[in-house]
């Protein structure tokens, strides 16, 4: 089954069709996808800025990582679930827009980078977090995260923009 076949299946399914044709639910899902970004991507960007030393410099990095983690993960759950619903309803159309596959790749990269950081540095933050200089790898992960999630937002914003212009 090709990607196109799979997206057609979702598009033609009852959930996909009713979501797409609903007057309020579809815009609401898109709205929640957007404002959920303040928790998911917004909080991860703020955490990255702390990691690279540009924000909340007088707050221990361990505090930032641990105290924001549940909010950040909750935000990603909301963004992810609403994102899947949007693909369910309109994936077939969105897939044709060139930035969408790029956005998916960037999300995968950002996710893998976060997992790598978590296993390599996140668990030992209490050891290195109070030192004047953070491990080089942790800072690199912070920069990679900043760049990749910013690029995800740029691609994401261009989807409705390019979609509207192609109508």
């Amino acid at each position: 089954m090709s990607v196109n076949d799979f997206l057609t299946l979702l598009y033609d399914s009852q959930l996909g069709t009713s979501l797409r044709e609903s007057l309020y639910i579809f815009p609401a899902v898109e709205g929640i996808h957007l404002i959920g970004l303040a928790l998911s991507v917004g909080l991860i960007l703020f955490t990255d800025l702390r990691l690279v030393g540009l924000f909340l410099k007088d707050v221990p990095v361990e505090d930032v990582l641990k105290q924001l983690r549940p909010w950040l993960l909750g935000g990603f759950a909301v963004t992810f679930i609403t994102g899947i619903l949007l693909v369910w309803a309109e994936g077939l159309k969105i897939y044709q827009i060139s930035v969408f596959p790029i956005k998916l790749l960037l999300i995968a990269f950002g996710g893998l980078n976060a997992i790598w950081f978590e296993f390599k540095y996140g668990r030992t933050v209490s050891e290195w977090g109070s030192k004047a200089e953070f491990p080089k790898g942790a800072k690199v992960a912070g920069w990679l995260s900043l760049v990749s999630w910013s690029a995800v937002i740029i691609c994401g914003r261009l989807i409705p923009y390019l979609d509207a212009r192609s109508l």
Binding site: L37, L43, I153
Partner: peptide, 10 residues
């Protein structure tokens, strides 16, 4: 939008 919303959220 992200700058304001996330800052205010924090």
């Amino acid at each position: 939008f992200l700058l304001i919303l996330t800052a205010i959220l924090l």
